[in-house]
C-alpha cells in the first residue's frame, strides 16, 4: 500500500521544486530598487484610508459552515457510494435517507432566508 504512495511522495518533491524554482529564479535575476512611493498599497491612486483588515459580514461564516456540513456528509457517503450496489436494498435507502435529511435542511435554510445575499 505504501508502495502506491511512493509516487505521491516523489511528486510532492517535484511540486515543491516547481513551486519554489520560479520565485527563486526571479529573486536572483530581478532588479532591486526600493522606493517608499512604490510600496504604497494600491487603492485607485489615492492613499489608502484606514486599515485593510476591516470587519466582514457574518454571512461568509454561514456559507463556510454549510460547506463543512456537506463536506462531512461527503466523507460519510464515499464508502457507501462505493459499496451500495452489492448490498441489500435497505442499505441504499439508508444512504438516500441521509441525503434527503440534508436536502431538507438546505430547503429549511432557503425558506428562512439564510441563503440570501444581504
Amino acid at each position: 500500500m505504501l508502495e502506491q504512495f511512493t509516487f505521491v511522495g516523489l511528486l510532492f518533491l517535484v511540486a515543491a521544486l516547481l513551486g519554489t524554482l520560479p520565485p527563486a529564479l526571479a529573486w536572483l535575476l530581478r532588479p532591486k530598487k526600493p522606493h517608499p512611493r512604490k510600496s504604497e498599497p494600491y487603492e485607485c491612486g489615492i492613499y489608502p484610508h484606514g486599515e485593510a483588515w476591516v470587519q466582514y459580514k457574518a454571512q461568509y461564516y454561514i456559507f463556510a459552515l454549510a460547506f463543512m456540513v456537506f463536506d462531512v456528509e461527503a466523507v460519510f457517503l464515499f464508502p457507501w457510494a462505493l459499496i451500495y450496489n452489492w448490498l441489500p436494498l435497505y442499505a441504499v435507502i439508508e444512504g438516500v435517507l441521509f441525503l434527503l435529511l440534508l436536502l431538507g435542511a438546505l430547503l429549511y435554510a432557503w425558506k428562512k432566508g439564510a441563503l440570501e445575499w444581504v
Partner: peptide
C-alpha cells in the same frame, strides 16, 4: 453502525439549522 450513520446526518442537519438561527438573530 447504521444508527450512528443516520444520527450523523441528523447532527449535520442540526448544525445547519443552528447556523440559520445565528443569521436570523442578526
Amino acid at each position: 453502525y447504521a444508527l450512528p450513520f443516520e444520527v450523523a446526518s441528523v447532527l449535520l442537519v442540526m448544525a445547519l439549522i443552528g447556523a440559520v438561527t445565528i443569521v436570523r438573530e442578526r
